[in-house]
């Protein structure tokens, strides 16, 4: 059963499937009801599942996540939407001190099957606080699972896997790629699709591994295509916590080089962690240091500068060149 879907529509379809599958699944957030969310990802759900299951919340992110925690204790599986990456921060307390730690604090008696959907990343010409890549904060926090999708197929399945997870999942949606379209096979069983925590080789290659996730996958694939001198393997890491190091190290041991690209800032970013770990595990196979291509360590700039700030095709290729300079 193939359907041609955008990433946004695929998440919508995945949410719908989750709500049909399990009456305990709820959607909550600002403007998610009648409007269907500012990106229309929850379009139609309010109409079809009603206001008890699709909740237009008051404008308060701490309130959204805090009440989702209470709902989860009562047996519900809330999928909360944070309208934009930059508006997660008012919910930081509830997320870091409560949501992430509840299992541990209750000695395993409480589960927190909460999904936090966040449209993230830049490149849409927006004003402040609408273009951030906060994944490192989540990745740094024990108790949270962190995933990002890069194509409609993953969008459709991973949102459903996230909803079924008994751990809190930060579900990062690459907003500038919402409108990318592809065929999605919705007919297979959810048990047959790749698990949410597994990395995926998006393009096989032999000379260098290029690792990315979310919005940067498209750029990484373009870079691999553009570099006619080398055979680049692209890995979509998909899950930032936990990270599927088995797939990554197997690849790096074959290629001898690793370039990690992300929109998050360089210092303390996901690339730093991956570089450290790969260096430990693949030291004798590496032909070059692990190279990071990331945003600069500055606040996200005004939109007229974002094309320079975000790692683009040329910056990624430059990173690949640096790896081959050794």
């Amino acid at each position: 059963m193939g359907t041609n879907l955008t990433i946004g529509k695929a998440i919508n379809a995945g949410l719908r499937a989750s709500m049909e599958h399990d009456p305990k699944v709820l959607v909550m957030g600002e403007d998610v009801g009648r409007l269907g969310g500012v990106f229309r990802v929850t379009d139609g759900l309010h109409k079809d599942f009603g206001a008890d299951r699709v909740i237009d919340t008051p404008l308060a992110e701490s309130g959204i996540v805090g009440t989702a925690i209470g709902m989860a204790m009562r047996g519900y599986r809330p999928v909360v939407e944070i309208q934009f990456d930059g508006f997660f921060f008012p919910a930081a307390n509830q997320t870091f001190t409560q949501l992430a730690k509840m299992r541990r604090r209750s000695a395993g008696k409480l589960s927190m099957p909460v999904v936090m959907r966040i449209p993230y990343g830049g490149g849409i010409g927006a004003v402040e606080h609408h273009s951030e890549s906060p994944e490192a904060y989540f990745q740094h926090t024990a108790g949270l699972r962190v995933v990002s999708v890069a194509n409609p197929e993953d969008a459709y399945w991973m949102i459903q896997q996230a909803v079924r997870s008994d751990d809190p999942v930060i579900f990062l949606e690459p907003k500038r790629r919402y409108y990318e379209k592809a065929e999605v096979d919705t007919g297979v069983s959810i048990d047959a699709v790749t698990p949410m925590g597994a990395a995926r080789i998006a393009r096989p290659g032999t000379d260098c591994t290029l690792l990315a996730y979310g919005p940067m996958i498209k750029t990484a694939l373009q870079a691999a295509e553009a570099d006619v001198d080398h055979s680049i393997e692209v890995i979509d890491v998909r899950s930032l916590s936990p990270i599927d190091y088995a797939t990554i190290t197997e690849s790096v041991k074959r290629t001898g080089r690793l370039v990690v690209a992300h929109e998050a800032t360089l210092t303390g970013g996901p690339g730093a962690e991956i570089a450290a770990r790969v260096t430990e595990e693949c030291f004798y196979h590496l032909e070059s240091p692990v190279i990071r291509v990331a945003a600069f360590d500055t606040p996200y700039p005004q939109s007229r500068l974002e094309e320079h700030y975000l790692p683009d095709l040329d910056r990624v290729l430059d990173g690949v060149d640096r790896a081959f300079a050794y």
Partner: peptide, 10 residues
């Protein structure tokens, strides 16, 4: 209004 949410939601 707060985007699409009327005052009753706040």
């Amino acid at each position: 209004w707060a985007i699409s949410e009327p005052l009753e939601r706040q």
